[in-house]
Write a protein that binds this DNA or RNA. Structure first.
Lengths: 110, 110
DNA sequence: AAATTCTATCGTAAAGATACGATAGAATTT
DNA sequence: AAATTCTATCGTATCTTTACGATAGAATTT
C-alpha cells in the first residue's frame, strides 16, 4: 500500500492537503518567506541562504511550482521565482475557512 | 539521506512545517472537520465515515496527537477526541502571520 | 569557439508516510 | 468468568520524500 486514497475524499479536502504540503517542510517555509521578503529570488541566492545543496533547493522549488504557489520566469541566465498571488489567496481562504470554523463554543472537553 | 535537516532552520519554521503536516493529508483534514462538526468523535465513528481501516484512522489520530492539535480523553470503553484550542489558535496565528505577510504590493512578476 | 554561469534533471541512498490485517489491551456487559 | 466492544500497537508491503553528487542544458561572456 503506502498510497493515499484520494478518491474517497472531497476535492476541497484534497486541495487543502496539497496546499498544506507547501508549508509542511521548513525549507519550503524558508523559501516562501525569502520570496516575500525579497520580492524575487533566484535559485543561487536561495542556495546561499539555505544550507542545502543546489539540487535539493531546486527540488523544493519544483514541488512549490507543482502546487502552483510559486511560478518561475526565465530571465536568462537566471530564473525569477515569485509567489503566485492567485494561489496564495486561495490558500488564505482555504486555511482561513477551515481554521475559523472552530471556536471555543465548538469545543467539548477542555 | 532522506532526513530533514531541522537544525538549519528556525524554531518558527520547523513549527509551522509541523503544524502544516496536520493538514497535509486529506484524511486528517476530514478528521479535523468531523471533530469540529461533531464537537467530539470517537474512533469508531470516524472509521464509519471515512472509508479507511480502523488501524489507519488510529494512525492518523496518533499523528494529530503528536502535533498536539487534538487530544483524546479516555471515556471507557471509548475515547473522545477533541480539538486542542491552544494549539488550534497557535496554528491560526502561525498561518495567519505567514499568509498575511504577502500582499500584492509584495509581488514582482505578475 | 571556448569558457563561464546558472538551473534542471538523473541516479541513488536512506528515511518517512500510508495502508491494512492481525493481535493485544482495557473496560463494560452478559 | 466469558463474551463483547472499542482502540492501540505490531508487523509488513509499498510508495513518497528528502538529500546530494554528477551531469546535462541553456544562455551569456570572454
Amino acid at each position: 500500500m503506502g498510497v493515499t486514497k484520494t478518491e474517497i475524499f472531497t476535492e476541497q479536502q484534497n486541495r487543502i492537503a496539497d496546499l498544506a504540503k507547501a508549508f509542511s517542510h521548513p525549507a519550503r517555509v524558508a523559501i516562501l518567506q525569502l520570496l516575500i521578503a525579497r520580492k524575487s529570488c533566484i535559485c543561487g541566492d536561495l542556495v546561499d541562504e539555505l544550507e542545502l545543496a543546489q539540487a535539493t533547493v531546486s527540488q523544493h522549488l519544483k514541488e512549490l511550482k507543482r502546487i502552483g504557489i510559486i511560478h518561475g520566469e526565465i530571465n536568462p541566465p537566471r530564473v525569477c521565482y515569485c509567489i503566485n498571488p492567485i494561489v496564495w489567496s486561495e490558500a488564505q481562504e482555504a486555511f482561513g475557512a477551515l481554521l475559523d470554523r472552530f471556536t471555543l463554543s465548538t469545543s467539548c472537553c477542555n
